[in-house]
Design a protein around this nucleic acid. Structure first.
Lengths: 361, 361
DNA sequence: TAGAAAGTGTATAACGTACTACACGATTTG
DNA sequence: CAAATCGTGTAGTACGTTATACACTTTCTA
């Protein structure tokens, strides 16, 4: 360890000495606080420049702000989360804040511990993406640190929230499919063990599906598969659909990843999409536009949502006290996995290949 | 602001008082430092439990460690990065360290500023994923903070590194294609403006391709397209290939995302894969296994690489001084986009559809 | 059995910044 | 023209933790 070559990092005291002023003055300049003349400001800034001074966040954190915020995300693999994060990041950059991403892992405990750790580490505020937990739990959190909730519905007096209108999104998909002539539309839902929070996106989307079906007079055709929004969940749902004597003409997966799973099953079984079955997703992740059969889906403009969340968080850190709740309008992106159903499609015979499905590599 | 209801956060002084010992003793217990009896330890831990004490990282950071490390990543959209991050995270979790992800954005300046900010924020160490910059720049960094470099080749005395053997990976692909009977194998390379660092993965991979071709006596067939490892770059490469009178029988894209681009072009042009053209990628990102035509690619076991990087970083924070450089052996994942070439495939006529390629939605 | 070593606990000085309180001269007010 | 106000700068302490230095026992060594 060659300590000799390591020049000690300059502190605000060094800056003050170099500029010939008090540390208090230097601190004021740093924070551009009230009570500094323009010449003082110039002098101190010159010294900071000359010494290559950089404020130490750990030390600042003990009394003031660290100028750092974090976004808590369960899973980085989710492309949509990445979009949200990027939106937040850009807004933070604009305002000279640093954004760090905190991968909490799944499960409520893991997320709660992460939030505590972030508070311990002096974050000035946090964004939570689709957090688990009740309103009152989130409100308790929000009393300790500024919080913006992203992708979870419902307003609260204690924290801000930004969410897409999942109800309207689900409506758009059903309207689209009905306008193409579909009447048998199956919905793939996401269910979490022990969680039953009406504010979660999945709950809102399924309500949107049900509502739209009823509105179109298709209440009797409502068909919901309880599954998981994952590749595997989608594949299982697809196999379930194939195993039925009477199949739907369209499948609406509540999430793009699940839609991919459904499609995988169909491709493997030789079912033509969209001729024999229409499939729609939700989220408009990048991959939906990329694959050979591009998926009809709902765009939530993740970048905008993220940016909105970032803006709200920084506002609140800046002092705003009344809560703001913002809803983003989603749009339909019609692509190639949806089309009018075949004439006699309601009754085509079960494919014998349905039981030879394989997802092995 | 109802401050009255906010119980002040307990400090280590509160813990010490509650346990009836000195703060020094409490601190020792917290850090499990040398010089505490087991009864002292039990007593203090009980008090910490009782008060719900949590150490404040900002304060710790002023003198000791924050028990936090960060991984700097240019782009969260890259699925492979997510894998690496997850690997690091798991290792950190095992050792009671917190991992934060620092999205730097692209460009060397942005990355350098991020590293400075992370040092300011008291990180105990950082992992850099495929960083830009020269060895000496990285070494300068590494003298200020423990550094592990991930996905960049070459050892240094000042920092640890973990990389896949990209040379061997490229060899595996070429060997695979040659063993199928291919001789005309085109490589899609990645080039960055003004960067020419032999230690970057892209440089190593292209050398691996060239070397393998020569080894198989196919030196004259070497064909490298200078492009970008992105969807768009892959599509352009695909169009370039289609525009040629004499086409290759196989395309080796140095990155899965680029392979997707190539495939998109082929699908749009009606070229059958792998019958008319074999396509291979590199990275084994999740999407390659998911799509209807699963892509032959190279697996680098990102989770293992990440875990190795995490382990090295924590070791070094723990005091190791000699540098370690670790190389991971990649494996071939043969899927459905590669097969033996058609008999007369070398001279099939240019597809008339080649000029009607469209990537619009 | 004296002296060294090992084990266990404490007092206290940093660490770098923010901010309250105050001092002082210059300006405005009544 | 005295008093109040304003603008600008400083002194000094608090923030929560680590770690060095030391004191006091107890146990080992020669």
């Amino acid at each position: 360890m060659n300590k000799g070559s390591v020049n000690k990092r300059p502190t605000i005291v060094d800056v003050a000495t170099h500029a010939g002023v008090s540390t208090a003055a230097a601190s004021k300049v740093l924070r551009n606080a009230y009570g500094v003349s323009s010449e003082m400001k110039a002098k101190v800034q010159a010294s900071m420049q000359a010494l290559g001074y950089r404020p130490l966040a750990s030390a600042r954190g003990m009394r003031g702000r660290t100028h750092t915020v974090a976004v808590v995300v369960a899973d980085l693999h989710n492309e949509f989360s990445s979009l949200l994060v990027e939106g937040i990041r850009r807004e933070c950059e604009r305002q000279k804040y640093r954004l760090l991403v905190a991968p909490a892992g799944s499960g409520k405990n893991a997320q709660d511990r992460m939030v505590e750790d972030l508070i311990d580490r002096g974050m000035d505020g946090i964004v939570l993406i689709s957090p688990l937990g009740t309103d009152s739990e989130l409100e308790t959190m929000a009393r300790n640190i500024p919080v913006v909730v992203l992708g979870r519905h419902g307003a609260s007096p204690d924290f801000d929230s930004v969410a897409a209108d999942d109800f309207a999104g689900a409506n758009l998909v059903v309207d689209h499919l009905v306008s193409l002539g579909h009447r048998q539309i199956t919905y793939v839902n996401h269910t979490t063990e022990g969680t039953n929070d009406a504010r979660l996106p999945e709950e809102v989307r399924v309500r949107g599906y049900v509502d739209a079906m009823i509105r179109h007079g298709l209440g009797d055709a409502i068909d919901i598969i309880q599954s998981q929004w994952s590749q595997e969940g989608g594949e299982q749902s697809g196999r379930l659909i194939l195993s039925r004597a009477k199949r739907p003409t369209a499948v609406f997966a509540g999430c793009d990843v699940a839609a991919f799973g459904v499609l995988t099953t169909m491709w493997n079984a030789g079912i033509r999409v969209p001729e024999e079955l229409s499939v729609a997703g939700f989220d408009n992740i990048f991959t939906t536009s990329l694959a050979p059969i591009s998926i009809t889906t709902i765009d939530q403009s993740g970048l905008d949502m993220g940016a909105a969340a970032g803006r709200l968080l920084l506002e609140r850190i800046g002092g705003r006290t009344e809560a703001v709740s913002s809803v983003v309008r989603p749009t339909l992106v019609a692509r190639k996995t949806t089309a009018a159903p075949m004439q006699s499609s309601n009754e085509f015979p079960p494919a014998h290949g349905a039981t030879t499905v394989s997802t092995e590599m």
